[in-house]
Amino acid sequence: MYKASDRAGQGPVKRAVRLVDAYLNLSGHNTYTFDSCIERAPFNFPASSFLRSYDKKLSMLDGLRLRRIKKAMTDAAVNKRVYHLWWHPHNFGKDTARNIEFFRKIAEHYIALKKAHDFRSLNMGELSQLAESHRGAKPRVVPCEATSPGV
């Protein structure tokens, strides 16, 4: 049977691959140069990864999920690229304490990258303002991690 979700590109195989990719690096680090994101308006800051919320059934794999995110963040920091960790606060509504604890580990890694590589964290509004300020000027590479909490 053909479902509407399959028409939208959300079929079971694609969803399974995305799930595995959240834990194991199947698709690469998915980081981007700042220049490539601001080539034309509207700006395109593709998601590097979605911060999946805690799932009791998959909790034994959380170490892999955290390592996957940290390695991509490190790649972005070292290579002065954009890493867009996509999430919204409502994603943490269930199992809030576990989700915040997981995010705390990401934040600690961010702090280490900031100290070592001047990695920057910007929300989507700040990132868009930075992109707008470079409009018409020769773009330069800007290291940043863009998160989108509620934006």
Results as ranks from 00 to 15, higher is better:
52 R>N: 10
83 Y>F: 15
126 E>W: 06
71 K>S: 06
87 W>V: 00
133 S>T: 12
113 L>I: 01
87 W>M: 07
125 G>W: 15
110 Y>E: 01
69 I>W: 02
35 D>G: 06
99 N>R: 07
53 S>Y: 10
17 V>R: 12
20 V>E: 06
75 D>W: 08
51 L>Q: 01
85 L>E: 01
55 D>H: 10
44 N>L: 09
139 P>K: 00
51 L>V: 07
106 I>A: 04
51 L>C: 03
119 F>T: 04
105 K>R: 13
72 A>G: 04
15 R>C: 09
76 A>T: 02
115 K>W: 08
101 E>C: 12
29 H>C: 03
58 L>G: 03
55 D>Q: 12
100 I>S: 08
141 V>T: 13
117 H>Y: 15
31 T>H: 00
58 L>A: 09
92 F>Y: 08
19 L>C: 11
53 S>P: 11
10 Q>N: 09
61 L>A: 03
3 K>N: 10
145 E>K: 07
72 A>C: 03
3 K>Y: 12
134 H>I: 04
15 R>D: 09
11 G>H: 00
58 L>N: 09
84 H>N: 15
119 F>R: 03
34 F>E: 05
2 Y>M: 15
82 V>W: 07
142 V>G: 01
92 F>K: 08
65 R>V: 00
115 K>V: 14
85 L>H: 05
26 L>S: 05
94 K>V: 07
85 L>S: 04
81 R>T: 04
35 D>E: 11
5 S>A: 06
127 L>E: 11
3 K>W: 14
123 N>C: 15
149 P>D: 04
31 T>P: 00
134 H>P: 01
7 R>C: 11
48 S>I: 02
35 D>H: 08
53 S>C: 10
77 A>Q: 03
131 A>Q: 11
113 L>H: 02
80 K>H: 13
27 S>C: 14
27 S>M: 15
116 A>F: 08
4 A>Y: 15
18 R>I: 05
131 A>D: 08
143 P>H: 08
56 K>P: 12
47 A>Y: 06
88 H>F: 05
48 S>C: 00
36 S>D: 15
145 E>F: 07
105 K>V: 06
1 M>H: 09
46 P>H: 04
147 T>S: 07
58 L>I: 10
122 L>A: 09
39 E>A: 14
50 F>T: 08
65 R>T: 01
148 S>L: 05
85 L>I: 05
41 A>S: 05
97 A>M: 10
39 E>N: 08
